[in-house]
Design a protein around this nucleic acid. Sequence first.
DNA 1: CGTGGATTGTTTCCATGTAGACAAAATAGC
DNA 2: GCTATTTTGTCTACATGGAAACAATCCACG
Lengths: 152, 152
Amino acid sequence: MSGAAPGVDLSRFESSLGFLLRLSQQKIFARFFATLGPLDLTPGAFTILLALRDNPGLRQGVLANALMIKRANMAKIVRALVDRGLVSRHVPEDDRRAIELNLTPEGAAFVAAREGAFFAHDDESSPELTDNERETLLGLLRKLAGTQGETP
Amino acid sequence: MSGAAPGVDLSRFESSLGFLLRLSQQKIFARFFATLGPLDLTPGAFTILLALRDNPGLRQGVLANALMIKRANMAKIVRALVDRGLVSRHVPEDDRRAIELNLTPEGAAFVAAREGAFFAHDDESSPELTDNERETLLGLLRKLAGTQGETP
DNA sequence: CGTGGATTGTTTCCATGTAGACAAAATAGC
DNA sequence: GCTATTTTGTCTACATGGAAACAATCCACG
């Protein structure tokens, strides 16, 4: 159980989805940071940039819901991205409460320069699994996360 | 994509293991907190109690490694559990640096009173999946997390 | 039209987890 | 035996994410 724990009985957790998800996510993210540290952004922030690349003008709250990021936290991350000149804000005429987000030219360049490494690393992030197993896992996670079947 | 995000194109992430793991874990944990809030402990801390129930006298660092919790954080959680009277510490004679952990009688009662609800909730935590799919997912996550095949 | 309720993003405070530094103890190597 | 290195747990400073409260704005309803 948890490869590095000889002699520790964690068998009770082997059927716990919550536990296994946490462990798996931790493992994948640790690999991310070990390899892509120089990305200069957390995976979450980079995901936001990617989402804006594909969805220009998206409202902040809509993006937060889509990525399951809380509004308070999204405000902070967006603030940081704006301060870095990667994202720009615009208040739409039809809703003075809202904020629409776009990548700046610098933001677009930032994403273009790093996207390849980001996804290449993700593709190689599960050497424990065969390609077939990985695809199966992705499919099940999509279903669990509610991402399956929706199209833009 | 992410059921609640009509009109947002997140298709680029549908093959991202890191993203899907984070989303899934978030979803499962949100369900945990919504249902088992009165558990009075984070899932992680409860997991520690369960692990100690099954592994009495385990060394703190060994437990931290097994559960992929950083030493600094483990020290804090254990401190809190000790302060609550759920866990006791003992310095072993053969290594004065180390600390062995055990459940107190209160700790054991705490676990016994809540374990059923904890795992029952976990068993019901993925209504999006069939039983078969859930078993497949568990198997793949065990493989990914490196928990497969090891026995006490 | 006016009011109550809902929505949107922000801020502050809090909780949780980590990096790095440290001291004490144990181990490895000569 | 001695010294350098590693291990173990703790503490501090920091980072990250969330809850709650709030103001501004929008919407629903009478």
